[in-house]
């Protein structure tokens, strides 16, 4: 409970800090999400992408 109340007092209590948290977490979430989507695409299409034929040359 101690963690919950510190979290509440530090962030969720005020809109300003809440919005800041949303913006900061968006940055990390989107970066991770895009990278993982890209890595799925790359692993499915290994050997077929332009990056792969570029290496051969």
């Amino acid at each position: 409970m101690a963690l919950n109340s510190t979290l509440y007092n530090a962030i969720f209590k005020r809109t300003s800090t809440f919005v800041l948290l949303a913006m900061a977490s968006t940055f990390f979430f989107e970066r991770t999400f895009d990278l993982s989507a890209e890595s799925i695409f790359r692993s499915v299409n290994q050997g077929k992408l332009y990056e792969d034929i570029k290496k051969e040359e």
């Binding site: 799925i40 695409f41 499915v44 299409n45 077929k48 992408l49 332009y50 792969d52 034929i53």
Partner: peptide, 16 residues
Amino acid sequence: WSHSGLINSLDHSSVR
């Protein structure tokens, strides 16, 4: 085709 499928890309060496 190697590009038919929901997330299959075009075969770029074939495109070349």
